[in-house]
Simulated assay, not measured.
Amino acid sequence: MTATLRQCLLAEVLGTAFLLIFGTGAVVVDEQTHAIGHGGVAAAFGLIVLIIIQGLGHISGAHVNPAVTIGFWAAGRFPGRRVVPYVLAQLVGAALGSGAVWLLAAPGSSLGATLPAHSAWQAFGVELGLTFWLMLIILRVTCSYYEQGLLVGITISSTVALEALVGGPLSGASMNPARSLSPALFNGNFTAAWVYVAAPVAGVLLAVLADRLLDLKAPANIQPPQ
């Protein structure tokens, strides 16, 4: 049975909310207790992405990221009429998630904000590259030839965790406008906010182009692998 738009939007709100609660929540817990560490924060993001994909992916696709929604639309895999509702649902979910973190955080907490370690343009390059690779992996593992259930979630979540581990110290490894804008909304720090909107969108569009260049067309008389 196909999910209704209302069910899809609810799934996106819930998924994005819990991405922020457990992802940025891990940042805040480590900020206050130093009990998790950078590797633990990266693992938290990867784990919650895996859980969201496995729990909600069959309903809405578990985009939980405006850039991913735009990427699927640009790739011709998502209807244009649903882009704005999905993005709005993701922004609402992110705000709910950051609001929950804000209620539990100590005064002055960053709330898991993403900020450039050096220049805004370096952060732009890092975010563009990370989002490009994430979207390319998503497009490749979700194509009909290779989709393998749980392995899709594991591959995507592993990519998120790896990129957070490596790119986090440089840019915050956001790859997601909703994930960055929501903490900024609550802590009032919009430093280089444009980076975390423009770079992910540019990254997914480049990934769509690369995916098309990599696409292998099977000859008409040969069936694709099952």
Rank of each mutant, 00 (worst) to 15 (best):
G112W: 14
L209D: 04
L165K: 09
I156A: 02
S182R: 03
M135Y: 02
L139Y: 01
A173P: 02
A161G: 00
L209A: 15
F186Q: 04
S158I: 00
A106I: 02
I156R: 04
M175E: 02
L205W: 02
L103Y: 06
T131A: 13
S182H: 03
D215R: 15
L162N: 00
G129C: 07
R212Q: 13
V204Y: 05
T191V: 09
V204S: 02
T159R: 05
V195W: 06
A193M: 06
A210I: 10
R212G: 15
L165D: 10
L136M: 07
Y145H: 05
A193R: 00
G153W: 07
V197H: 14
T155G: 05
F132N: 01
P169Y: 07
E163D: 13
R140N: 13
A120M: 06
W133C: 14
S180R: 01
L128C: 03
M175R: 01
N189A: 07
A178K: 10
L130S: 05
L134Y: 10
A178Q: 09
V160M: 04
R140C: 12
L128A: 05
F186S: 06
I154M: 12
A120D: 15
V195S: 04
G125H: 13
R140V: 14
N176V: 08
T131F: 13
P177Y: 09
L139C: 02
L181Q: 00
L165R: 11
L205K: 02
L150E: 05
S98T: 13
G203T: 05
N189T: 08
F190Y: 15
G168D: 07
M135N: 05
L111E: 11
E127V: 10
A100K: 00
D215V: 11
A207H: 05
L170I: 10
S180G: 01
A199D: 10
L206E: 09
A106D: 14
G125M: 14
A192T: 03
M175G: 00
S174N: 02
G167R: 08
W102V: 00
